[in-house]
Lab assay of single mutants.
Amino acid sequence: NKFNKELQWATWEIFNLPNLNEEQVKAFIDSLRDDPSQSANLLAEAKKLNDAQA
């Protein structure tokens, strides 16, 4: 299933962003679980936040 692979990839990527704190990671993962179809958008937002906090 396409969404499942995207969800797994986005989850792994978010867990490995070095500049997000635990609460931010949890919030993004919760959002992914709530709406897996938004995984690409949520990953992009997480990466933006990660870069901003570098």
Rank of each mutant, 00 (worst) to 15 (best):
Q53P: 03
L49D: 02
W9N: 13
L20G: 00
E13L: 10
A10K: 03
E6Q: 05
I29T: 06
L43T: 05
N21L: 14
V25P: 00
N4R: 03
A52Y: 10
L7V: 14
L42Y: 07
K47T: 04
E23N: 14
T11H: 06
W9Y: 10
L42A: 04
D34F: 13
E45S: 09
N1T: 05
K2L: 12
Q24S: 02
N19E: 04
T11I: 15
N50P: 00
Q38A: 03
L42P: 00
I14K: 03
K26E: 08
A54N: 13
K26D: 05
N16D: 05
D35M: 10
I29V: 11
K5S: 07
W9D: 11
D51L: 10
W12T: 15
D30N: 13
N4D: 15
L43Y: 06
D30W: 07
E23Y: 13
E13N: 03
Q38L: 07
A44D: 11
Q24H: 02
E6I: 06
Q24V: 03
A54R: 02
R33L: 12
Q8R: 04
L7E: 11
S37T: 15
A52D: 12
K48A: 11
D34A: 12
D35A: 08
T11F: 14
L43A: 04
N41P: 03
D35T: 11
F15H: 14
S39D: 01
S37L: 08
K5E: 15
K26W: 11
A54M: 13
K2Q: 15
N16F: 04
Q24R: 01
A52Q: 10
D34E: 14
K48I: 10
I29A: 04
P18G: 10
S39I: 12
V25E: 02
N21I: 12
Q53E: 05
Q8P: 03
N4Y: 10
N16S: 09
E45I: 12
A52G: 12
Q8A: 13
L32R: 00
P36F: 06
N4A: 04
W12I: 10
L49M: 10
P36T: 04
K2S: 15
A52F: 12
L32Q: 01
A46W: 02
K47E: 06
I29R: 02
N16L: 08
E6K: 02
E23A: 11
N50R: 00
A52T: 11
K5Q: 15
F15R: 15
N19K: 03
A10I: 14
L43S: 02
Q38I: 05
K26I: 12
E45W: 05
N21S: 11
Q38R: 06
L17I: 01
D51Q: 12
A40Y: 10
K2T: 15
P36W: 06
L43M: 06
N16W: 05
K47I: 09
F28H: 01
E45N: 10
D51W: 07
V25Y: 03
E23H: 13
R33G: 07
N1I: 07
E13G: 03
P18K: 12
Q38S: 08
K48M: 12
Q53M: 12
S31D: 05
E45L: 06
N1P: 03
K48H: 11
E23S: 11
L42V: 14
L7T: 06
Q8W: 13
A44T: 08
S39H: 14
L7D: 06
W12M: 14
W9K: 13
K5I: 11
E13R: 03
N50S: 14
A10D: 03
N41H: 15
W12R: 10
L20A: 01
N41Y: 13
R33P: 01
A40F: 13
I29S: 04
N19A: 05
L20D: 00
I29G: 03
D35G: 03
T11K: 11
L43R: 03
D30S: 07
E6W: 11
L42H: 04
S31A: 15
N50V: 01
L17T: 00
N50Y: 01
K2W: 13
K26Y: 07
E45K: 09
N4I: 07
A40D: 09
D51M: 12
L17Q: 04
N21F: 09
L32N: 01
E23W: 06
L43F: 04
K47W: 08
Q38W: 05
N19M: 05
L20K: 00
N4K: 02
T11D: 04
S39T: 14
A52W: 11
L42T: 10
A44Y: 09
E45H: 08
F3I: 10
E6M: 04
Q53I: 09
Q24I: 02
A27K: 12
L43E: 02
L20R: 00
N21Y: 12
Q8M: 13
Q8G: 05
K2F: 12
W12G: 12
N1A: 01
E23F: 11
N4S: 04
P36I: 12
F3H: 09
F28P: 00
S39E: 03
A27N: 11
A27H: 13
K5F: 06
L42D: 01
S31Y: 13
A46G: 01
N50D: 04
A27E: 11
I29F: 05
S31L: 09
A40S: 13
E13H: 08
A27F: 13
V25S: 04
E6A: 03
E6G: 03
L49S: 03
K48E: 07
Q24G: 00
K2G: 15
S37M: 08
N19F: 11
A10S: 04
D51S: 12
D34I: 12
D30M: 11
L43H: 03
E23I: 11
A10L: 08
